[in-house]
Design a protein around this nucleic acid. Structure first.
Length: 853
RNA sequence: GCCGAGGUGGCGGAAUCGGUAGACGCGCUAGCUUCAGGAGCUAGUGUCCGCAAGGGCGUAUGGGUUCAAAUCCCUUCCUCGGUACCA
């Protein structure tokens, strides 16, 4: 069908058909759709499966170049796997719930759903222009009832299994965005991750998911090929620490009877004799009880102030510790000593027991506090001989060789051993137990927002919290909403939504108006891709068993502790619900870098630093844009956007075009064009072409596998340049030329799918063969023999400096090489008449270094 | 402060199981070519001295190990990301 367009061999460049990507690309995209080239048959078990996943986008309106940067190399990878005979599934969808839709809706008085769906439609078109192998039949859109009903279904299962619960708790509250997860509060000044407003505290009844139940399991990354920094971040986030809980008792005084238990968590039970005071978090429940009447005013003032401690000045209070004495005392269980009880905001209510024993001699924070308020400091751990040295700061070490002092019967014991002994002894009296504590908190799951999945519960005056029965799912989010001004959840005013009858007693009841955190959607969406329209279950067990876990996941590192941890939690919970067999969602993870605006800031419409890919596609074609994004630099690095250099990549594709279309043309601008290189005949040229082709194939194959797309493109450019050198010469008529061009097209196909398909179709047509897609071709086999050089250049160093180079046959022996090297004039000159002291043959003959004194 | 990543030409970057520093591309310079296009081709391009041949110096900084260091070890400085008193 293209034969008549093929221009016959002629040295006249003017007749060469130009490379016109804007004509070629849409035509092939339509053709691929027509023949179903990108359809994945999930039931096909004749080939090994490969599930390749990239983080689905939030439909904010426009895909910017950053989206292309994420998707393009992943698409190339999917195609690379496909060419290796794997049954590749590479789906896409939209993370459609979220605040920007709601904010846009409030501002422009339109429905969040309309806003979202319009954006999705636009972004679908943009994705299609990229030529990615997405199978759109498996698209998932999370704001559709067919998806979110299963969020509700999962929630009910979690509720039944005590993995979801409701609790009154102080939550981080943003005046614009409502409740925030702990992870959504950023920075020292505690601002909202989305709008940047200062975050306050509020007490609300909230839904939680019990992520902490899986804390230990989440620390285990066995079998996961994930970047080390992500594993480190998750490990730190979970923050497991081993220690002991120790029970102190409050002492009686003139104002109260005492005898309350005061539990503390410590990782240093060996320092128990050094506890000279206690500190409670301001929100600790015993604070009102323990506050002595004479100190009530001061304590209440402090508690109130720390509840407000979200203001900017907290930055400065970070430096200087604050606190107040309650007037009460506690008794140290190990020595019955009476020590004062203070409250201070450096002790956190939400961690451990919300109370600590303060050991200023061996804890920096306690030391600082004791110093500030003139409290006692007693050293109880020291290396032998240093017992009497004054402490200028806390001595936190407890290395081997250091022993307890001032610790009664335990004095003299090694610190670690003593700690265990103390806990064991107290445990006999029920006053201590070994304990593990985590920084990880349960997942605050509810949001006081409209645009999310409704939480499927009902509040009944008689029956309390009642789950919506499965058969009543989905609880639909009403389409028409009335915002009445600003951010407050409009569901609170929607009578038709609110009013229900209790499923248990049939009496009037009220619906939950909180919706789910939108991270719920991304916690299991890759399961749903396999059966997006299944209406009797969230997943298709057989397909899930066959296709998951995901073989390769790609996405940004900013999701290290949110999405990537919730997904692991969800997978484990699903396993425990008996829904799936596996433990982990993503076998292999790669974090690509982030493309910033030219100003080095995050790309955003409001900053006006967004690069629109459509514009570039219009000018250079999708293939050029794809290739340029891969060529820019290492994929995990990202960086500020700059289009300078895109012309070079476009030039490369134009050369590929010229090579394939017009192999016998010559360059009028180059007097050497059309002649073989000096001293080469056809046989030598043929060998050189094969060598270049197969060497490149070997390198490029490895580079695809290692995500080194930038050097992969560089090597393809190099090969094209080599071919260019032989264009118009007698070598271009040889079968080796043809084979090398073929290799170039096949290697380039995953990265630049349109131009390669076009040129491939012309080759087939020229050969009188029927069309079949280049993307259905097998990845070529490497001819190792052809890829090997028969000569090599050896640099010769004298005392580590390169003084000469010599070209030798590949199989030369060290003795021969050494003789040859020493006979060189330049080498003799560099030796200056001295005899070599040593001659080093390095790297299997890659280099010779002659050492003289 | 702590955790993580990183510092290489005018620019993006290559080379890191120690072994030719600067692949490939951009930009720049010169030449060629011309259905003057946002074209194409060839050559040059780390830096200093030199007409050249050739040589000196060079991978943030200072030291060390080695025949040999961008690469390994130690010091200091800087940039980016994460985190914020977690007992």
């Amino acid at each position: 069908m293209y034969r008549e367009r093929t221009v016959t061999a002629t040295p006249d460049r003017t007749r060469i058909e130009r490379y016109e990507p804007t004509q070629i690309e849409p035509r092939w995209q339509a053709r691929w759709d027509e023949v179903g080239l990108h359809d994945t048959d999930l039931e096909d078990t004749s080939r090994p499966k490969s599930y390749i996943l990239t983080m689905y986008p939030y439909p904010s309106g426009d895909l910017h170049i950053g989206h292309w940067y994420i998707v393009t190399p992943t698409d190339a990878l999917a195609r690379f796997h496909r060419m290796h005979g794997e049954n590749v599934f590479f789906p896409i969808g939209f993370d459609a719930y979220g605040l920007p839709a709601e904010n846009a809706a409030i501002r422009n008085n339109i429905n969040p759903r309309d806003w979202t769906m319009q954006n999705i439609e636009h972004e679908r078109k943009q994705f299609r222009s990229m030529g990615a192998v997405f199978d759109w039949r498996y698209e998932v859109v999370t704001c559709e009832p067919e998806f979110y009903r299963w969020n509700q279904w999962f929630f009910l299962r979690l509720l039944e299994n005590d993995l979801a619960y409701r609790r009154m708790s102080p939550v981080d509250w943003c005046p614009n965005d409502g409740t925030l997860a702990r992870e959504q509060v950023e920075g020292v000044d505690r601002h909202c991750w989305r709008c940047g407003a200062p975050v306050e505290k509020r007490d609300l009844e909230q839904w939680y998911l019990r992520t902490t139940k899986y804390a230990d399991e989440l620390l285990n990354f066995t079998g996961l090929d994930w970047p080390e920094p992500i594993k480190v971040q998750q490990t730190n986030w979970i923050g497991r620490s081993e220690g002991a809980e120790i029970v102190f008792t409050t002492a009686a005084d003139d104002a109260h009877a005492g005898g309350e238990e005061l539990r503390v968590f410590t990782t240093r039970p060996d320092t128990l004799f050094g506890a000279t005071f206690m500190v409670l978090a301001p929100e600790h429940p015993l604070v009102p009880v323990l506050t002595h009447p004479e100190r009530r005013d001061e304590v209440e003032r402090y508690v109130a102030a720390s509840a407000r401690r979200t203001e900017i000045e907290r930055l400065s209070t970070d430096r200087d510790k604050t606190g107040v004495f309650t007037g009460s005392f506690a008794v140290n269980p190990v020595n019955d000593e009476r020590i004062p009880i203070w409250i201070a905001d450096y002790v956190l209510g939400g961690y451990g027991t919300g109370a600590i024993m303060a050991v200023p001699a061996h804890d920096e924070r306690d030391f600082e506090f004791a110093h500030r308020f003139g409290l006692a400091i007693r050293r109880v751990v020291a290396a032998p001989g240093t017992e009497d040295e004054p402490l200028e700061r806390a001595f936190v070490s407890h290395a081997a060789g250091e022993r307890l002092i001032n610790s009664g019967e335990y004095s003299g014991l090694p610190a670690y051993e003593a700690g265990r002994a103390i806990v064991a002894r107290l445990a006999e009296r029920g006053l201590a137990k070994p304990t593990v504590t985590y920084r990880l908190r349960d997942w605050l799951f509810s949001r006081q927002r409209y645009w999310g999945t409704p939480i499927p519960v009902i509040y009944c005056e008689r029956d309390g919290i009642v789950a919506v029965p499965d058969e009543d799912l989905p609880v639909r989010l009403p389409d028409t909403v009335d915002y009445r001004g600003r951010g407050e959840n409009p569901l609170n005013h929607d009578e038709t939504f609110l009013r229900v009858t209790c499923p248990k007693c049939g009496q009037p009841a009220r619906r939950e108006t909180d919706t789910m955190d939108t991270f719920v959607d991304s916690s299991w969406y890759w399961f749903r891709y396999l059966s997006p329209h299944k209406d009797d279950a969230p997943i298709d067990r057989a397909l899930v068993d066959r296709w998951t876990p995901v073989d390769q996941y790609t996405g940004g590192a900013e999701h290290a502790v949110m999405h990537l941890m919730y997904s692991r939690f969800w997978t484990k919970a699903m396993r425990d619900l008996g829904l799936i067999a596996e433990d982990e969602p993503f076998k292999r993870l790669f974090n690509q870098g982030q493309i910033l605006g030219a100003d080095g800031e995050r790309m955003s419409k409001s900053r006006g630093n967004v690069q629109d890919p459509d514009e570039l596609v219009q000018r250079f074609g999708a293939d050029t844009v794809r290739l340029f994004l891969m060529f820019m630099g290492p994929w995990d690095q990202g960086g500020p956007w700059s289009p300078s250099g895109i012309g070079g990549v476009h030039r490369f594709l134009t050369r590929v075009w010229t090579l394939a279309i017009e192999p016998h043309g010559t360059e009028p601008g180059d007097p050497e064009s059309g002649n073989l290189p000096e001293g080469e005949d056809d046989a030598a040229a043929a060998a050189a072409l094969r060598r270049a082709g197969h060497k490149t194939l070997k390198t490029v194959t490895a580079e695809y596998g290692a995500f080194k797309f930038n050097t992969m493109v560089a090597h393809l450019i190099e090969l094209a340049n080599t071919l260019m050198r032989y264009r118009g010469t007698s070598a271009a008529k040889l079968p080796e030329w043809d084979e090398t061009v073929r290799l170039l097209l096949l290697m380039l196909a995953p990265a630049a799918p349109h131009i390669t398909e076009e040129l491939w179709s012309r080759r087939l047509a020229a050969a009188g063969a029927e069309w079949s897609s280049i993307h259905s071709e097998a990845w070529p086999d490497i001819d190792e023999a052809a890829a090997t050089d028969d000569v090599r250049e050896v640099p010769i160093q004298v005392n580590g400096k390169v003084r000469d180079r010599v070209t030798v046959p590949a199989g030369i022996s060290e003795i021969e090489l050494e003789q040859l090297v020493l006979a060189r004039d330049k080498v003799q000159a560099a030796l200056g008449g001295k005899a070599p002291d040593r001659v080093i043959h390095a790297g299997g003959g890659r280099l010779v270094n002659i050492v003289i004194r």
